[in-house]
Design a protein around this nucleic acid. Structure first.
Lengths: 134, 134
DNA sequence: TTTGACCTTAGACTTAACTCTAAGGTTTAT
DNA sequence: ATAAACCTTAGAGTTAAGTCTAAGGTCAAA
């Protein structure tokens, strides 16, 4: 069992953020100490890792909550519901990855074309680079 | 030359958003009509597309402004500055893409493991799926 | 020539996601 | 037994990125 400060330190977030997640139904500690301190289990930490990873790939807390709701009462859902929902999130991520890839390639192309020397960057146009690949 | 409403309609954003971008130094119309209407050129539209694409891949407006500043006074910068900066953005995008790929694969694995049938989703665990690949 | 769809500004409001403050209780080390 | 480092709550404040409101000017069509 970790107290809020330990968990926060471990994941480089503020204790306030954990309280915020609790208030918003994303992650409640599975226990409280006699004096009312929040006590987080290993399973809670797993859930937190999930939240932080999902956030890192651009899901909003509302979307993450949706994913976690499926998790929370898994037995209430039919397998096809879970599959459908997860597949739609996969599709979302794939759209995003395609955008990222295109943008990355454009920037890379620009960097490649750029001599990288000490002279003026007159011919290094980010806009042109992106425009080329519409 | 497009008026603010036309440009907004074309890119599915609000005219307010364009005014906001102007106020924050991201995109000013290259002209004003006699009566004070904003008039955007084709080059302005190109710049807007850049902003929207950069936003879509997760750059903040501040980061976008940084990219645009390079663009704005390209001749003030040395080629190596531009190259360095662009390459650091490429690296950022690659970290993000790696995270996205991992998350996507995990979700995909879950969807694949899920029978997709009408029975309870007891065994479809998003958390477990993500945990498997740390 | 007036109606409707535009546009202007300044400034207030919203939303998401925190982050901080105040006032106080708990635990651990010395 | 007391100081330092934790924790509690409620509620206010912040930041980014818009979004809306009010009060008024412009322009094209009927």
């Amino acid at each position: 069992m970790f107290r809020i400060g330990e968990l926060a330190r471990q994941y480089q977030i503020k204790a306030d953020t954990l309280r915020y997640y609790e208030k918003n139904g994303l992650l409640a500690p599975s226990e409280r100490s006699a004096s009312g301190y929040r006590l987080y289990s290993h399973a809670d930490a797993v859930k937190l890792r999930f939240i932080l990873k999902a956030k890192a790939v651009g899901f909003s807390l509302a979307e993450i909550q949706e994913l976690l709701t499926i998790e929370a009462n898994r037995s209430q859902w039919a397998c096809q519901d879970v599959k459908g929902m997860v597949e739609s999130k996969v599709a979302q991520l794939e759209v995003k990855m395609a955008e990222l890839t295109r943008f990355r390639d454009s920037l890379q192309e620009l960097a490649d074309a750029c001599c990288g020397g000490p002279e003026s960057a007159e011919n290094c146009s980010i806009l042109d680079a992106l425009e080329v690949r519409q």
